[in-house]
Each structure stands twice: as C-alpha cells, then as structure tokens.
Amino acid sequence: HNGKLCKLKGIAPLQLGKCNITGWLLGNPECDSLLPARSWSYIVETPNSENGACYPGDLIDYEELREQLSSVSSLERFEIFPKESSWPNHTFNGVTVSCSHRGKSSFYRNLLWLTKKGDSYPKLTNSYVNNKGKEVLVLWGVHHPSSSDEQQSLYSNGNAYVSVASSNYNRRFTPEIAARPKVRDQHGRMNYYWTLLEPGDTIIFEATGNLIAPWYAFALSRGFESGIITSNASMHECNTKCQTPQGAINSNLPFQNIHPVTIGECPKYVRSTKLRMVTGLRNIPSIQYRGLFGAIAGFIEGGWTGMIDGWYGYHHQNEQGSGYAADQKSTQNAINGITNKVNSVIEKMNTQFTAVGKEFNNLEKRMENLNKKVDDGFLDIWTYNAELLVLLENERTLDFHDLNVKNLYEKVKSQLKNNAKEIGNGCFEFYHKCDNECMESVRNGTYDYPKYSEESKLNREKIDGVKLESMGVYQILAIYSTVASSLVLLVSLGAISFWMCSNGSLQCRICI
C-alpha cells in the first residue's frame, strides 16, 4: 500500500475532517465546509473527530445509520420544511452556546429548535410527501429539559409530546424532565432520530412541544462500492481501485494482509504473511546465498510486491572476458508455465471484495464479540484455502523447474562428451581453451567436438587428477538461474548478450 488516501476510480472521497457522521448530518456549525458535499467514492472519518452533536445527546440507531450510509455515493440536500413558512405559530430561531460559531450562539444547520411564540405553543402538524424518486433521509430531535421551569419557559406545556409517523415508522416521544450533570454547559439533553422515507411515502410530524424540527433532508443515491473508513492518512493526487484505512492498494494479487476493511475492488484479506509461490528452483544453499535460486511470486499485497520470474541462460568467462545470454527457448517455456500457473491461482482465488467494518453500540458488546468470532472463522478458512492451494502448486513448480534445468544440462553434456569433466555440482571442467566463438557454439548447439578432442585428450593426460582450476583450465557451469522482474525479464530476452569482463582471468566458464 502507499499510505495515502486516493480517488477511487477517479472519484474523490468525502473527508469529514474534524467532524464525524453525526456532526455532518445534523449540521454542526463547525462542519459548515461539508454542506456543499454532493457525491463521493467513500467517506473518511478520523479516529478522534471532535465535532459531532454540539448540544449533548445521542443519535439513536447511529450504527444502523452508518451502515445505511456505507452504500450511499451521492445525496441532494434540500429544504424539507421551509423555515419561514412551515411554522407560522412558533418561534424557530432557537440557539445555544453549546453550538457556538465564530463566538456567537448558533444551532444545527439542518434542524430548527421550535419554541413557544408569545406565551403559547399551539399543537403543530406538518407533513412531507417524498417526490424525489429515491429514498429521503429525514432527521429530527426531541429536547429533554433539566427542570419543569425550563419546560414551561420554552414550550408552555408541561405534558408535551412529539409524534412522527410514516408508512414504515411510527413513534411517540415524551420529554424526560430530570436533573443531569452539566455537559457542554447544558443540564438538558437532546436525542436525535432518523428514518428513511421511501419514494411516494408521507411523513407526518405532530407536537405540542420539545420538537427539534427537520429543516433540511437528504435524497440518497446508492453506490455499492462506497463505504466509510476511519483513517488518519492524508489525501493525495492519486487514483486506485482499492482503498484501505492504511493506504491505497493497486494490485491484481488475490490476497492482502494490510487491513480487513477495504473499499472498492480489493484482494481478499488473509492473516498469512508467507503466502508465496515459487518460480525458481529448489533451494541450493551456495546459490541461494548469491540470490540466484528460489525466486518467488508473492500473492499477498503487503507481504511480497508483485511476481518475480526466474529465467535460464548461459554465463561464460574466458580470456576475452565474461558474458550472459538467455536461453530463449527454455526461458519462454518457463515463463509460459509460470504465467499459466499464476493465472490459474488468481482465477481460482481472485474475487474482488469490498469489506466494511460493522458498528455496534456499547450495549451490543456481546453481539460485536460474536460477530468478530464469526469473521475470524471465515478469515481462517480463507487463509487455509489460500495456503493449501499455493503449497500444492509450489511442489509442481519445483518439479517443473528441475526438468527444465536438467534438459539444459543434458544438452551441454551431450555436446562436450569427454572434452570436459562433470564435477558433480552442476559444473563441467573443460580440457581445452574455449574462446567466445567456442562458447557461442555450446550455447547454440553447434559445438565442434572433433575440433577440440585432441587438445582435450592431451590435457587429460597431463592433469592426472590435479585440480583443474589450479592448472588454468576452464570450467563450464551447467545450471544457472538469475532473477529478474517481469519487465526486466522481457528486456533481457530482447538482448543477445551483455558482457562482464574479468581482467586477466584465465578461467573459461559457460553457465546455464
């Protein structure tokens, strides 16, 4: 991952900044910058967002509201009850120091605090018919004063009620008058409520006091790749198909172990950190130390980045220098085999997901714990399936590479015959000098055995068991695999060879 928040398929997220979902939807004055928000790819909250409900109280069923919003990608904020005409018999300019803005008392931008007009609070009834052709999110509140005197001074009615009804919602609220500790300079409380109004449905408000009335509502448009994440990451000019709280993932790998919460087309989250597919040879310690064997393909974004291909070729060293050249036929066979294998694994496992966190309130801790156990169970199954699949494929890959290298080895052996000696570690020792032209003939299969047989015969008789390297004779190393990324691999195959001279070296080696 890149540690950044990015656009998702070209669409920017909605960053709530210092506000949370509650503050944004109710219209906390400190969240005025969010009022123009219309569309987004996903919503970003920060872990310690401080601006929620400015007048103390709870947004009821907040967790369910977050779940609903996680599939919303755009909205239209509109005046559901026009301020100047909807409440002619009531005062609608209630403000509070708890919702101060720029040093002055204020109130929510989407709600109206209705109080008595003169000395009376006549029963009010108002309704709205949803003609938007889509779901409408309606929010309101109920004020709970701290004393009967406060109730009387604001609403005149000691036994007030609030009723809200639609086809799918029907509740009646009565204020709970009680002494409470002071929070944000208030002994009173406000509880906030919401409902989704279906197209064509009607919502009716009736009250004799204590109503925090809707002013603006939201017509919602769903987008199934949307979601809500909690993150401290910063926004950058970048684009992605998959976003996590820790950063964007741009990967076609089937798995990731970065974060379980994802938005967009994302690899499946697994616990494993070692889900690797081999593309090189079986481990040979001396070669492995030099980083030549054991190439791997990573299938977990965050564990290993991208696929690494092994390729086969020849390396030689003689009086004229040293050089490398790919054996294109065996390399292409290996590439085709690995590509098919990788595609097979991805096809089997690479279903892209959006995974969002589930919200539970403080009273639902047991449910949250149960949900976590269920999620953990599914996660263990996914991890096991992934590891088992790759384990089985790896064994076949190792066998496949062994065969490829063996074929190259036999190709060289059949040409050199007794003009060189096998020394048991995949290397041959020449009994004759071999210049670049000679080396090329070994690589392309045109090695002239009779041409060098007499010199080889004489050297075999002279050496008589002495280690060949100390006599200045020449080696050919018969097994060799270097490691390159897919891009470098293609470039390498396009070149005939490249040279690395070893000044004054008397050794001649050709490596497979």
Rank of each mutant, 00 (worst) to 15 (best):
N232C: 01
A233D: 07
M235H: 12
C238Y: 10
N239Y: 13
K241R: 15
Q243F: 07
Q243T: 04
Q243N: 10
A248R: 08
L253Y: 10
P254A: 07
F255K: 09
N257R: 06
G264R: 05
G264V: 03
E265H: 14
P267K: 04
P267Q: 02
K268P: 00
Y269R: 00
V270G: 02
T273F: 08
T273W: 05
K274F: 00
R276C: 11
R276L: 08
V278Y: 03
G280Y: 03
N283S: 03
Y289D: 01
L292I: 15
I296G: 02
G298K: 04
T305L: 15
T305V: 11
I308G: 02
W311R: 00
Y314M: 15
Y314R: 01
H315C: 13
Q317M: 12
Q317Y: 14
S322L: 03
G323Y: 11
A325D: 00
D327R: 04
D327G: 06
N343P: 00
S344C: 15
V356N: 06
N362R: 13
L363S: 02
K365Y: 07
L370F: 11
N371Q: 09
D376L: 07
L379E: 06
D380T: 08
I381P: 02
T383L: 05
A386V: 13
L389P: 05
T397G: 04
T397R: 04
T397I: 07
H401Y: 06
L403A: 12
V405Y: 01
Y409L: 04
V412P: 07
K413D: 06
S414I: 07
L416A: 02
G424D: 09
N425K: 09
G426K: 10
G426N: 12
G426E: 07
C434D: 01
D435S: 13
E437L: 12
C438W: 12
M439V: 10
E440P: 02
R443S: 05
G445Q: 07
T446H: 00
Y449C: 06
E455L: 15
L458A: 13
I463A: 01
V466Q: 11
S470A: 07
Y474H: 14
S481L: 14
S481E: 14
V483T: 13
S486G: 04
L487M: 14
V488Y: 02
V491C: 04
S492G: 00
S492P: 05
G494I: 01
G494Y: 06
A495S: 09
I496T: 06
S497G: 15
N503R: 11
G504P: 01
G504C: 01
R509I: 11
I512S: 04
